[in-house]
Amino acid sequence: MSLVRKLKPDRNFTGVLVTLSILPIFGLTSLIFGISTGMYTLVGMVGLFGIYYLYGFIRTGNIAQLVICLYTAFFGYILFVAAGTGKESPFERIEFGLAYFLGLIFFGIVIIYLALTRKLKWRGREVFELAAEPIEDIGNGYTSRPRPVGKVDYSPQQMRSFARFCSRHLIALPYLTSKNVTLVPVKMGDEYGRLLGLSGDYRDATWVNFDVDGEVSVHIAQKDYLDYRQPLAFDQLCTSLGQVFIDFFGLYNKGEGVRAIDRMDELKIAFFS
């Protein structure tokens, strides 16, 4: 397995920025309205994160999203209790201290495990790297048109089941219609915009579409194409991206979906990338 990256290094700061934005907001509200109001504001923001991850779990079925949601609920509750104690430190109460530290240890271990095993990671970069792996020719030729890449034999039920597999493992976000199953690979940092519908129409993003007749077509967004270090032969890249999903589908159909995950894990792409 080649570890030569064909994508540019990830410099997308959006994901971290969204999380870090909590800190200055907390600091400012504390400074202006006092620590208690600051804490309640923090509870509100943690609550919003919780709702986002709950929605993420409902939309994708990814258990790790639910864990984060539960963690934000726990953390939000602790903050809420702490905010209500006024000037008295809540940690002076042994029950509060115990609940806080035990919860922190539990969720800390679980979240670190989820991070290390990449169960929380959106796999867009892995998908794009896998698609580019066999492409050696350079030559640009970008077009905004989708490319029909082949035909596969499957039932719509099988396809929907595969789409659920892709979303559960954050390989791609599925969009289902009566005639199509469209899979949109999402890179880390882009998940907020894509999940919340702030990134525009999914048809403008990179996608792999499976229609009811078995036709597979691929569209690569210019933003994603420009993310490659070199102008790879676009025609081949589209075919290869379609083939990645066709291969994944084949593995999943044989009950070997985990092999698809293994292929992505072997790329050893950093968790936040």
């Binding site: 640009n140 030729g141 077009t143 905004s144 048109r145 989708p146 029909p148 219609t177 009566s178 005639k179 199509n180 048809r203 579409n209 229609d211 036709e215 077509s217 569209h219």
Partner: peptide
Amino acid sequence: REREGAGARFTVARNEDYI
């Protein structure tokens, strides 16, 4: 074939494989 750098924008049908 499509010309390189044609600069055209293609709108794809939502539910069918055509432009």
